[in-house]
């Protein structure tokens, strides 16, 4: 399979096979500071962004700090 169907912040996306978290963040234009990533409700620590690939049906959440509380 050459493409991966996943969800990023709730939106369906199609990615190339082997897309890492780093690749995903770069392609979506997120600054790498002040953000965190979870896949399927587990945090992917930034130390593993370069070697964690998004696979089919993954639910990727990219979060940051906003005014609150």
């Amino acid at each position: 399979m050459t493409v991966v169907s996943a969800f990023v912040n709730g939106t369906p996306v199609t990615l190339g096979a082997g897309t890492t978290v780093d690749d995903l963040l770069a392609s979506t234009g997120h600054r790498p500071t002040g953000i965190a990533v979870a896949i399927n409700r587990e945090v992917v620590p930034r130390s593993r962004w370069s070697r964690t690939c998004v696979v089919d049906d993954d639910q990727v959440e990219i979060v940051t700090a906003v005014p609150g509380g």
């Binding site: 965190a36 990219i62 979060v63 700090a65 609150g68």
Partner: peptide, 30 residues
Amino acid sequence: ATVAMRRADTASRGSVLDALATHGIDVLPN
């Protein structure tokens, strides 16, 4: 100062983190 954690939106302008950092205020996420 507290902040909340929400889905990141690359279109949003101005970051609360930058504003707090400018004033030397540490963040307390909730």
